[in-house]
Design a binder for these strands. Structure first.
Length: 896
DNA sequence: TTGGCTGCCTTTTTT
DNA sequence: AGGCAGCCAA
């Protein structure tokens, strides 16, 4: 009888628990209820991956392995059954006295570890756990990134492997500085082996857990390989001396620690009995090893990933980790999540079309029961300004229909592509935010202050010391620094140790005063750290080091960016303050420095501001937006030039395209531009192959009106300019030539001399557009009054005219007189490409204007600025905004 | 040692 | 195009 009751209770318990996760689909629920043993979740884009992770953790903590189990801790009673049935029927929580019966083998929250790639993802996970489980239990789950988790482990055990507890984390810039020193030491020429190449190789070795010894021992394929191994060894030695880890070391050294110290390993295996790893497709060999070292004998390891979204191969991620997971963990249960909740079917189908062209994949097809939605809009622009203006048009349209700026994201392949959009949006007054690119913490002044802060935390850090020892200038030049470094090496102490006794070294006699002064500053900083709060310490650093005085002096001299820099330092102090507020008692200098080393721009991106977001597709992974603009869909841009020659690289680009497309919820806008300025020259690019891979039924194409007009006039094909080595007839640079694919009307050549000394042509382009005009100019034309003599050449194919040009010099030294005399010679009257808006405009307060994006508004103030006007407009819908008169998409309606 | 100039190089993505 | 490093001159 009791057995029957227990059986009934178990069945009811399943129902009850399932009801708790009733909003999940079958596959998702399966994933949630698979609590023990290895589990691989293949989660397509938008398939509710984070939801599954959160719910799975919640289930572990609330019910453990109760679901599906036919046993209970004690035999069930009739009261148990009744109470549970009642809870199910009424949809209420079961009474707490049933807890023991329901929470069979429930996992304690601090036994769960969830690893993600970005702080943002970790934060989101924590936030959602908090909401689901409540503050106490939610917060006790350890959710962090690979790198933060490693830092945490290393902080605790650093001394075991010969590092100081307050080790420094080096960023790429620091690494490069170390590398330069190593090159000098080993007498390596960076022309023979570029520093970047060495760093890259070293980084790959660390990703693959190859030690310097192994690298040295491995049969070198060539001299460069052998040399790189020696460089690697020397680099590691330096880092160890400085008590520093670089990004790769954080993982690598943690793996070494866990592998070589069974006690440490067991400590963590006992502590974290349930492991979850997000974005598993982006793990490296080292990260895989780390995860397996943390996984205890119970093998409660759950990984979530999507092989189609693996986009970090270039930095050591190996897609094999996910492809081979089942082999490495026999008995793995694999669950596929293929239902997409994010996008319309048109968007999803477009994504599927593209990704199907890849061969190296597990294979899965996303589907959705969301509606068809609008077709994917493909726009061919004339140039990047046109592309920007088109995007502004669309956004403006959406705003008129009641949409929000923040619902729009502009995604691109590389950071450089943000510039034209940024400039257009700024001038048009469209609020936007660029995520990524130059990070705040990468700014020179910010890094300098951080360097000061970090040498107080870690006096051994010679790299950072060198960075700031003469910043601001305090008469400690290179020669002196090298002498100190030599002395330090001789005595086996840090450079700061030498500086503290500078008066004892004859070799330093000339620089004794400045050095002792520096030492004094250092001591005052140490003192400040001990006696004041962290943010006060930060502002002391800015003051006591003379940094502030230096910038103020610069600003007084009229140095333009000095004021900005001062402001940035103010922001830095604010950031320290925020850090303190967040961490309260636990705020430490090391902690702050760690944060800034590991936290990226995207982590602080906050959706709440009503702005259009601009970021790379890489940064956008894991995010979603109602309206997405995927720009620069051109061969040579996306896929990038560098990936064109390798099939594996191309597949990665395609996965990136897939990631980009699947960010869109409601509408996707893809654009390509016929001509684009890239790396300082104008290129003509074919539309991306990824664009052609999308079945026509899912897309709707439009071309820029300018292009339409031109093709009516002349009918042009697909001319573009190619680059071939020059060399003949005294050309120093490459010379370009135009090629015609299908009979077009004109060509123009524009050449300019870059060196300027003898006025020869350095580069020349012919492009299949326009009607044959050309202009050549000298870039730094110093000779002959700043002239270069330029001409366009017709390069090979019949059918377009020869362009030629007028030359001018814009040399900074003596070409000024010729400046602005450039003429675009126009032979046929065909209009030259138009600027964003034509003709100078003048506004006066009271004018009623129509803005393409913001709609109707009234001018409230006008300020002249650099040949233009800053117009302040009060818009009916969005309030007051400032725009540049000549660039904003503005039309004057009436004057009042 | 500093500061200015020239010439050189980079331009894929980032924790 | 633009930034930076290294070189040279003061």
């Amino acid at each position: 009888m009791a057995t029957d009751l227990t059986q009934e209770f178990c069945a009811l318990r399943d129902t009850y628990i399932e009801k708790q996760f009733g909003r999940l689909n079958d596959m998702q629920r399966q994933a949630v209820f698979t609590t023990d043993g290895p589990l691989l979740i293949l989660a397509g884009a938008g398939s509710g991956k984070t939801t599954v992770l959160v719910n799975r953790i919640a289930n572990l903590i609330r019910f453990g392995s109760a679901h599906g189990s036919r046993q209970t801790p004690r035999p069930a009673t009739e009261d148990d059954v009744k109470a549970l049935r009642n809870a199910i029927m009424t949809g209420t929580d079961a009474p707490s006295w049933l807890d023991g019966m329901l929470r069979q083998n429930a996992v304690r929250s601090w036994n769960v570890m969830a690893i993600t790639f970005t702080n943002k993802a970790a934060g989101e996970l924590k936030e959602r756990l908090r909401r689901m489980l409540g503050g106490e239990e939610g917060d006790e789950v350890f959710a962090s990134t690979f790198h933060s988790a490693c830092v945490r482990i290393l902080r605790r055990w650093a001394e075991e492997i010969g590092y100081p507890r307050s080790f420094t984390i080096y960023d790429t810039d620091d690494s490069q500085r170390v590398m330069k020193a190593v090159y000098k030491d080993l007498n390596v020429d960076d022309k023979f082996l570029p520093i970047k190449a060495a760093i890259n190789q070293m980084s790959r070795w660390k990703d693959q857990l190859v030690s310097p010894e192994q690298a040295l021992a491995s049969p070198a394929k060539d001299t460069k390989g052998a040399l790189t191994a020696r460089i690697y060894a020397a680099y590691e030695k330096r880092l160890k001396e400085a008590g520093a880890f670089d990004f790769d070391d954080l993982i690598y050294q943690t793996v070494q620690l866990l592998a070589e110290h069974p006690d440490v390993r067991e400590f963590y295996q006992n502590k974290y009995r349930y492991l979850l790893v997000d974005e598993y497709q982006d793990t490296s060999v080292a990260q895989f090893r780390l995860v397996s070292l943390l996984t205890g004998p119970e093998r409660n390891i759950c990984v979530v990933g999507d092989d189609d979204q693996s986009i970090y191969r270039f930095r050591g991620a190996t897609i094999e980790n996910i492809l081979n997971f089942e082999k490495l963990y026999p008995g793995t249960k694999t669950i596929r999540l293929e239902q997409n909740y994010r996008s319309t079917s048109n968007i999803l189908n477009a994504a599927n079309c593209v990704i199907q062209h890849n061969t190296e994949r597990k294979g899965k097809t996303l589907w959705t029961d969301n509606g068809e939605g609008d077709k994917v809009q493909v726009y061919t622009a004339e140039n990047e300004q046109d592309e920007a203006s088109h995007i502004a048009d669309v956004i403006g349209q959406h705003l008129k229909e009641g949409g929000h700026l923040a619902d729009h994201a502009i995604l691109y392949r590389m950071n450089a592509q943000s510039a034209p959009i940024e400039s257009y949006f700024t001038r048009a007054g469209i609020p936007h935010k660029i995520v990524g690119g130059q990070r705040f913490n990468d700014r020179k002044e910010v890094k300098d202050i951080h360097s000061y802060m970090s040498i107080v935390a870690n006096p051994r850090d010679d790299v950072r010391l060198r960075r700031i020892i003469n910043e601001p200038a305090r008469k400690i030049g290179n020669t002196t620094v090298e002498v100190i470094a030599d002395l330090a090496a001789q005595e086996g102490v840090s450079m700061l140790d030498i500086i503290s006794h500078a008066d004892q070294y004859a070799k330093l006699s000339r620089a004794v005063m400045p050095l002792l002064k520096f030492w004094q500053i250092y001591q005052r900083l140490q003192d400040s750290l001990e006696t004041r709060t962290l943010d006060e310490f930060a502002s002391d650093v800015i003051e006591l080091t003379g940094y502030k005085a230096m910038l103020e002096a610069d600003a007084a001299k009229g140095h333009e960016d000095a004021a900005d820099r001062l402001q940035n330092l103010g922001q830095l102090v604010n950031n320290v303050k925020n850090y303190c507020d967040q961490h309260g008692e636990e705020a430490t200098l090391e902690g702050y420095l760690e944060d800034i080393a590991l936290i990226s721009d995207i982590d602080s991106y906050n959706e709440s501001a009503d702005q259009v977001v601009l970021m790379t597709i890489h940064s956008a992974k894991g995010l979603e937006f109602p309206y997405v603009f995927l720009i620069g869909m051109e061969e040579g841009v996306f896929p990038s030039e560098m990936s064109k020659y390798s099939e594996a690289d191309l597949e990665e680009e395609r996965r990136l395209a897939y990631v980009g497309i699947t960010r869109a919820k409601k509408e996707l806008y893809i654009s390509n531009s016929v001509s684009r300025m890239l790396y300082g020259r104008t290129q003509r690019n074919e539309p991306s192959r990824f664009l052609r891979e999308i079945e026509p039924e899912y897309i709707e194409e439009t071309r820029s009106p300018v292009l339409e007009q031109r093709s009516r006039l002349g009918g042009w094909g697909s001319g573009y300019s190619d680059t071939v080595p020059g060399g003949a007839s005294g050309y120093s640079g490459p010379s370009g030539w135009g090629r015609s694919a299908g009979g077009y009307g004109g060509g123009y050549g524009s050449g300019y001399s870059s060196g300027g000394r003898s006025g020869y042509l350095n580069r020349e382009y012919n492009a299949g557009e326009g009607r044959g005009f050309g202009s050549a100019y000298a870039n730094r034309g110093q000779s002959a009054g700043g002239y270069g003599s330029g001409y366009g050449r017709s390069g090979g194919s019949a059918g377009y005219g020869s362009g030629y040009g007028s030359a001018y010099g814009s040399g900074k030294t003596n070409g000024a007189a010729q400046q602005n005399t450039a003429k675009q010679i126009n032979f046929t009257g065909t209009p030259a490409p138009k600027p964003v808006s034509s003709g100078p405009k003048h506004y006066e307060p009271g004018d009623i204007v129509e803005h393409k994006v913001f709609g109707r508004g009234q001018v409230v103030a006008v300020k002249p600025a650099a040949g233009d006007q800053i117009v302040e407009i009060n818009f009916d819908k969005v309030g007051i905004k400032k725009t540049m008169a000549n660039f904003a998409p503005l039309t004057k309606i009436t004057e009042e």
